[in-house]
Amino acid sequence: MTKVKRLLAGGSASFLVATAIVAGTVAVAAPAQATTQSCQNYLAGKGYTVGSGVKRACNIGHGVGGPADWLTCNQLLVDLGVRAAHARTACDRAAN
């Protein structure tokens, strides 16, 4: 049995966790980037101006993630002059 397995088998797992926390070596995952921001960043990267209309569409696209939110996001962006393919990708990013 390896040393790690023996330590864990010997009930030392909580000690190891406590030591890691005290030592500050526990990696904590950062929260996922806001999906509305991902939608906006994608469009900005494609050269579109991210104004209030784009922000509104991305916020709606984020919504509760239902198909109506995605469709509304897509239509709002297309109405603002965003190419359909870019609108679809942006709203996908908003919804995920």
Score class of each variant (00 low, 15 high):
G10M: 03
I60K: 06
F15C: 10
N74E: 11
V17C: 09
G81A: 01
A32Q: 07
V78A: 05
L43S: 01
C58G: 04
A85E: 13
L71R: 12
A87C: 01
T35E: 07
V78N: 04
G45P: 00
A95I: 05
Y48T: 00
V17F: 12
C58P: 03
A27H: 14
H86A: 06
R88F: 11
M1C: 09
T72V: 06
V26T: 07
A84K: 09
D69Q: 12
Y48F: 02
P67F: 07
A94R: 04
A57L: 02
V50H: 03
G51S: 02
S52M: 06
G65F: 06
R6I: 08
R6N: 12
A34W: 04
T36S: 14
G11M: 05
A20V: 05
A13H: 10
V54K: 01
G63C: 05
G65R: 05
F15L: 14
G53F: 00
G66F: 08
A68M: 12
T72Y: 01
T35S: 15
V64K: 14
A18Y: 12
V64I: 12
R93G: 09
S38M: 11
C91Q: 03
K55C: 03
A95K: 10
Y42V: 01
G11W: 07
T2S: 15
C39Y: 04
Q37G: 05
Q37E: 11
V64D: 15
I60P: 00
I21Y: 12
A20S: 14
V50W: 00
Q75H: 06
N74M: 08
Q33P: 05
Q40S: 11
N59D: 14
G51C: 03
I60S: 00
R6G: 05
L71K: 13
I21A: 15
G47R: 01
D69R: 08
H62A: 14
A29H: 05
V22E: 15
K55L: 08
V26M: 07
Y48A: 03
A95Y: 02
A44R: 09
G51M: 01
D79I: 00
T25H: 14
N74S: 07
A94S: 08
G81D: 02
A23Y: 07
G51Y: 04
G51I: 03
A13E: 12
K3P: 11
V22I: 13
K3G: 11
L43E: 04
A34Q: 07
R88P: 01
V4N: 12
A29R: 12
A18W: 13
G66H: 09
S52I: 06
V17T: 10
Y48V: 02
Y48H: 01
A27W: 13
L7H: 06
V78W: 03
G61M: 04
N96R: 08
T19D: 15
D69G: 05
R6F: 08
A95R: 12
A84V: 08
A95L: 06
H86Y: 04
H86S: 08
L8Y: 06
G66L: 10
G47W: 03
A27Q: 13
D79C: 04
Q33C: 01
A68G: 08
V22R: 15
G65M: 05
V54D: 01
V17N: 07
W70Y: 15
T25P: 04
K55G: 09
L76C: 02
L16S: 04
Y48K: 00
